[in-house]
Every structure is written in C-alpha cells, then in structure tokens.
C-alpha cells in the first residue's frame, strides 16, 4: 500500500505539471499577440501562474522555504507590467 503522504505529494507535483502546461497555453497568446497589451497581459498571468507553481512545488518537494521565492515573485510580478504599461502610454517614461 502506498503511504498516504507520498501519494498526496505526487498529486501536488502533478498539479504543478498541469499548471506548467497551462503556462505553455498562455505563452501561445504571448507569442501570437497581436498587440503589445495582449502580450503584457499574457506574461502577467504567467507570473501569477509561476507563484502558484512555486507554492505547489513547496508542498510537493516538502521544502516550505520555497514559499519565500513565491512571495518575492508575487511582490515583483506587477513591476514589469507597470513599467511596460507606462512605457506604452507615455512614450519614453518608464520609472
């Protein structure tokens, strides 16, 4: 019989894998576009996706300190979106 904890961790790893497949689907939008806003939104969703994957990995690999990486990504994720949005709205302004 499989130990229960082992099966649960496997399930979390499978869930993380499914989120990576979703990330590939999201990446299709980032490549095809057609406008910059589409790409920006796709990458923004990808960032949120990454936070979820990192949190799932933290459970699946039983390393709670991976959550720190997820937290940093959650904090930094908006930075690129804000910078590029500002760049497209007022040409030349970034910061």
């Amino acid at each position: 019989m499989i130990p229960e904890a082992f099966a649960l961790e496997e399930a979390f790893l499978v869930a993380a894998g499914l989120f990576v497949v979703l990330a590939i689907a999201m990446f299709y939008r980032a490549v095809v576009g057609p406008t910059t806003q589409d790409r920006l939104l796709a990458v923004n969703v990808l960032g949120t996706n990454t936070v979820v994957i990192l949190a799932l990995l933290a459970v699946a690999l039983d390393q709670p300190w991976f959550l720190d990486v997820a937290l940093i990504y959650a904090l930094l994720n908006f930075l690129m979106s804000v910078a590029i949005s500002k760049f497209t709205v007022e040409r030349g302004g970034v910061l």
């Binding site: 990576v20 980032a30 910059t36 590029i84």
Partner: peptide
C-alpha cells in the same frame, strides 16, 4: 524589441521555476 523584452520576462519565470 518591446515584444522581445516581454517574452524574455516569461523566460525568466520559467528559469526561476
């Protein structure tokens, strides 16, 4: 180049994972 920068951000996300 702007699209390149955006897609490069996606690459960075994958590398971090």
């Amino acid at each position: 180049v702007l699209s390149t920068i955006i897609v490069f951000g996606a690459y960075s996300l994958g590398m971090a994972i």
